[in-house]
């Protein structure tokens, strides 16, 4: 049991920090610009493919640096020449622009790298098991992921709280008009945040592409979960995003271990659900099967009852 708990906890951390890296950029973008960026996960995918391509030629080290940079530049360009010109048509148009963009990026990836998964292996120097406790081992790569993501959290946190640009960004989070009125170049800040957010997603892709699978569907499978993180965490709150990421990872990890069905729960409190009817399967589903759906349930409930999220500063 201790072994199970410990490793589940470690895996929660790894997955949670990956979610965080993905969503930290999005939460900044969303709360500053009000853009629900559906292409964010596509930047994550681009990061993975760039990482794959660069590490195939130059090795993993340069990929870790260059791929997020390239994705960041791409993100900034999208903001400058795409989003900014749609801005005048309102948020719906902006959002739809990103939906279309996600579409195009996926097709472009299909076109360039093919429709099947690519071989993006763990780099040699990380391909060993770090430690083995009882019978379960923990791979060095997972530890490396943890290290990078914690570093990113610290870095972003420091930039936001200790630098001038960070202070402007923070101010824009809560009072976008006020910052503009003070004479700061808000469009430039937007471009920077969008580029930076994309770069973070790209970095998540470089390391997540190895951890998971690098394939054209990777954006679509991870896309919605990122929205759950920013909603649950709350608008504009980096700490909220962190907490929400870990929470979601914990739900997914630990729900697997609960072998109780909804029918059992009702039975325990005294209701016997009829075994017939069109919804009979509902009572049969075990909590352990629902892990990955729970986040959406969580998101819907959160939006209904506490739309500003766990640690949000304001409503959207």
């Amino acid at each position: 049991m201790f072994e199970y708990l410990l490793f589940s906890l470690l895996n929660t951390l790894v997955l949670g920090m990956l979610f965080f890296m993905l969503s930290s950029g999005l939460t900044l973008i969303f709360s500053m610009m009000g853009v629900l960026n559906f292409a964010h996960a596509s930047f994550y995918m681009l990061g993975a493919y760039f990482g794959y391509q660069i590490s195939a030629v130059f090795g993993f080290g340069p990929a870790l640096l260059l791929a997020p940079l390239a994705v960041g530049v791409l993100g900034a360009l999208v903001e400058r020449y795409g989003l900014r010109s749609v801005h005048k048509y309102g948020h719906v148009a902006e959002l739809l622009f990103t939906v279309g963009l996600a579409f195009i990026i996926e097709e472009a990836v299909n076109l360039i790298w093919g429709r099947n998964a690519v071989t993006y292996p763990v780099p040699n120097f990380l391909d060993f098991s770090l430690f083995t406790l009882f019978t379960t081992s923990f791979s060095a790569y997972r530890a490396f992921m943890l290290l990078i993501s914690v570093g990113i959290f610290a870095g972003v946190y420091l930039v936001l709280t200790r630098t001038r640009i960070g202070l402007i960004i923070q101010a824009s989070l809560t009072h976008p008009q006020g910052v503009s009125a003070l004479g700061h170049n808000v469009p430039a800040v937007f471009m920077l945040v969008f580029g930076g957010g994309s770069a973070l997603a790209g970095l998540a892709g470089v390391i997540g592409g190895i951890f998971l699978i690098t394939e054209p569907a990777m954006a679509a499978t991870l896309g919605p979960i990122v929205f759950v993180v920013i909603v649950v965490g709350g608008m504009g709150s980096l700490t909220g995003a962190l907490v929400a990421s870990l929470l979601l990872a914990a739900i997914q990890t630990f729900a697997v271990g609960i072998d109780v069905s909804l029918g059992d729960i009702f039975a325990r409190i005294g209701f016997q659900m009829s075994p017939g009817g069109l919804l009979k399967d509902l009572w049969r589903i075990k909590i352990s099967h629902t892990g990955p759906i729970l986040p959406y349930l969580f998101m819907v409930l959160m939006l209904m009852f506490r739309p500003k999220g766990l640690m949000g500063k304001r409503e959207s």
């Binding site: 629900l36 919605p224 009817g277 069109l278 589903i285 959406y296 939006l303």
Partner: peptide
Amino acid sequence: LISLGIGELIAASALMLPSF
């Protein structure tokens, strides 16, 4: 976002509720 969440929920549970 709520509509997105509800959509995902129903779509994900659709395969788990074969009777309906």
